[in-house]
Design a binder for these strands. Structure first.
Lengths: 166, 166
DNA sequence: GCTTGTTGCTTCGGATTCGAAGCAACTGGG
DNA sequence: CCCAGTTGCTTCGAATCCGAAGCAACAAGC
């Protein structure tokens, strides 16, 4: 397999390495800020932010997991943690007894509001500062296209669950 | 000093979210490939790759940690693991008795060679496939600039001015 | 040569992550 | 109604990660 190990040219390598390094550093810094400002991990912040953006402030566990890339078990762990701290509530969905609906509380919204300015400040100073308006636009466009492509791509596993192969 | 809690416009948000999601998904997929192909974690692969690129195949621990963004202790953990598997050796530096020099072994190079084609294939299919040549160039340029800016920025002395004024 | 201070790495304890297995609720065919 | 299959979430065990404290080797000042 993989008989065509073409190697990358410097530009491609540069793009790849820069992507990895930028996201790592950014995440690291943001994580520190969130920890200091509101004792939140990055995942917890993402979850709260997503819930806060929802019309009714709630989502199913699965939808949350999909939006944040993390594993189901990891999400359970964080949701429990957030629930114990009173930032979200969890209740079985009225429709589907097996699905759990997570809802952000007022305290959760307060916490979100408390950490948000610092979050923006970090992004501003670290990510956007060296970029012109046009750079941001290009970045959004190109990375947005990559993201759509990734989402569309099959999970790439010789899945144990083969079904529906047309 | 809550002077500028400016919120981001959709383009900035899009760039930020796309960056996070792309890097997360990419990393996730790459991690799986590396695990299957050579039982390596992403960090381990990065370390081996970096060592393999070095003229003499070796680096000091600190330089490795800086290049890979991870914590010192985490690096120690991974280096020990790699050493036990015979992929690298560790020895005190002749100059500085306290610094440890990590060197890739032939077996390490073999492992690297084994996983590399698959690694490239993943990147190709996931990251580069939807991009035109020009997109890659722009990406390398813009992200490269951001990376340089981040490296120049002080790691954490940027926010110590704030007190918990809740 | 001693005493401080710094630097480089490791150990330690705790938090977070994941995949696999387990359990409970829905679904469809008989 | 029952049975197998699927779906949604949680529990479990193990791996990985980090920051803080600890230890050893250098560097400076006296």
């Amino acid at each position: 397999m993989a008989d065509t190990p073409r190697s990358f040219d410097p530009t491609e390598l540069g793009a790849y390495f820069a992507l990895i390094e930028v996201s790592s550093l950014l995440r690291h810094t943001v994580e520190q800020q969130l920890r200091e400002a509101g004792d939140l991990s990055y995942v917890q912040f993402q979850l709260l932010a997503r819930l806060g953006n929802s019309p009714d402030g709630s989502y199913r566990m699965t939808d949350l997991a999909d939006g944040v890339v993390y594993s189901r078990s990891g999400l359970t762990y964080q949701a429990q943690s957030l629930e114990q701290r009173g930032l979200v509530t969890r209740a079985p969905s009225p429709d589907d007894e097996r699905s759990t609906t997570v809802t952000i509380t007022q305290q959760g919204r307060d916490t979100l509001a408390k950490v948000f300015p610092g979050h923006i400040a970090v992004l501003d100073g670290l990510l956007f500062e060296p970029l012109a308006r046009q750079d941001v636009e290009v970045l959004a466009d190109v990375l947005g296209r990559v993201r759509d492509h990734m989402r569309a791509a099959p999970p790439r596993s010789a899945a144990p669950r083969r079904r529906k192969t047309s």
